[in-house]
Amino acid sequence: MVFVISVLLRLALYPSVSSQMDVHFFSTMNECHYDKQMDFFYNRSNTDTADDWTGTKLVIVLCVGTFFCVFIFFSNSLVIAAVIKNRKFHFPFYYLLANLAAADFFAGIAYVFLMFNTGPVSKTLTVHRWFLRQGLLDTSLTASLTNLLVIAVERHMSIMRMRVHSNLTKKRVTLLILFIWAIAIFMGAVPTLGWNCLCDLSACSSLAPIYSRSYLIFWAMSNLVAFFIMVVVYLRIYMYVKRKTNVLSPHTSGSISRRRTPMKLMKTVMTVLGAFVVCWTPGLVVLLLDGLNCTQCGLQHVKRWFLLLALLNSLMNPVIYSYKDEDMYNTMKKMICCFSQENNLERRPSRILSTVLSRSETGSQYTEDSISQSTVCNKSSS
């Protein structure tokens, strides 16, 4: 209101001068810059990191990033295949764990796209391509975070009833997974839908030159609050399971391993959650400081390393699954062994055929070995 009154007073007192000034002012306020390339925004925000990603540094980052992404694709695909193949994993918890692996796989795709659109290339991007680059990263983070929240609900439903797995049907789990990805895609598209600074350059951040500082504050705070809530919930569930297990163990029948299964699953989830919080919190804090317009924090020099730390999280999760879950480890091991055995059988030279024909004993032994190998591979799915 004060702004409108001041403009009207200037128009009344100084019609000739104020008319020109205000026309220019309002045209600047209403001007949007969707047609600009990113160099316009990088130069305006004094961001020099795009030029730093050149030469040897860029080659090292690309090599390390490529290795990480290949491992992310392979290991998370293995986790998803293990859940599909082994009937022991056909429960809601493991379906959600496979979806978390799918989120990590998607993160690998986002990092590959980032690697080919970073460094000197950053300033040549269009606004829409830059939105796509950042939107993929935001979507992968939201998918992982939302998935962990849903796993927390699933664990709470089962643990409070002292069951290994909840009673969620496959239909409900499928709907939950679709809901997770719908939320992730929406959150990744929020800046593109309008919460940006393309029409108000004074609100632009430094690390993300076309993101509004208010959006960065919202994004960082919402994720940090979600981290805190999940840590509290999982600690509460963990203490409940530990107390109940200690109380009921002397009075319950069944094997020790069966009674310890809920605790083993909780340790697996808590390890995954801990790695997620450790890898993502520094980057979110940096975004929060940028949103608060902290110009003396030296954020430009640390953001790339925190981005690599976030990439490391998608690489760590499959290692945690295989290390903490013996059944998952054995299934993945058998799948790798069977795959390598099948490749070896296909690549054997043709001289084996002549050996089989000339030496019947060797041939029969080779046949028995092949049958035993295929039997082992088939047993891994049971």
Rank of each mutant, 00 (worst) to 15 (best):
D52F: 14
K334N: 14
S206Y: 15
L289N: 04
R259F: 07
V232W: 11
L312R: 05
L315D: 06
F40Q: 00
F339H: 13
A110S: 06
N86F: 04
I84K: 15
L235N: 11
M328H: 02
Q37M: 06
Y111V: 07
M230H: 07
V164I: 03
S222R: 14
S364G: 10
D52C: 10
S249Y: 15
C377R: 05
S374D: 03
L13V: 14
K36P: 01
N223P: 00
V302I: 12
V285L: 10
A184W: 03
R163C: 04
E326D: 10
F179C: 13
K242P: 03
T169Y: 01
F131L: 09
A310S: 11
A12H: 14
S358M: 14
N147Q: 09
R243C: 07
V241K: 12
Q341T: 12
I371P: 03
S75P: 00
Y14G: 06
S370N: 08
A82L: 02
E31G: 05
T192S: 13
R304T: 13
G298A: 02
I352V: 13
C337V: 15
A189T: 04
L11N: 04
R213G: 00
D48P: 06
A275L: 10
N117Q: 00
P349L: 00
I5C: 14
V164L: 01
V23M: 15
L114C: 09
V190M: 02
L353Q: 13
I352D: 12
M1Y: 15
A102K: 06
I60R: 08
V59R: 09
A101F: 05
L312I: 07
R359Y: 07
A101M: 02
R236M: 11
R304V: 12
R163P: 04
C297L: 00
V64L: 11
I5Q: 15
I109K: 03
N30D: 12
R260V: 05
L168N: 05
Q134C: 11
S381L: 10
I336R: 11
F25E: 12
H128N: 09
L62T: 13
M29W: 10
P250D: 08
I180G: 01
T375G: 00
K303Q: 13
I183F: 10
M157P: 05
Q296A: 09
S140E: 03
L175D: 06
L58A: 13
R347T: 13
S19V: 03
Q37N: 05
L292K: 04
L287P: 02
K334Y: 14
V4Q: 15
L216C: 02
M332V: 05
L292G: 00
V302C: 07
N293Q: 05
Y329Q: 11
A226H: 09
S249W: 15
Y111A: 04
T362V: 13
W305E: 12
T47R: 14
E346K: 12
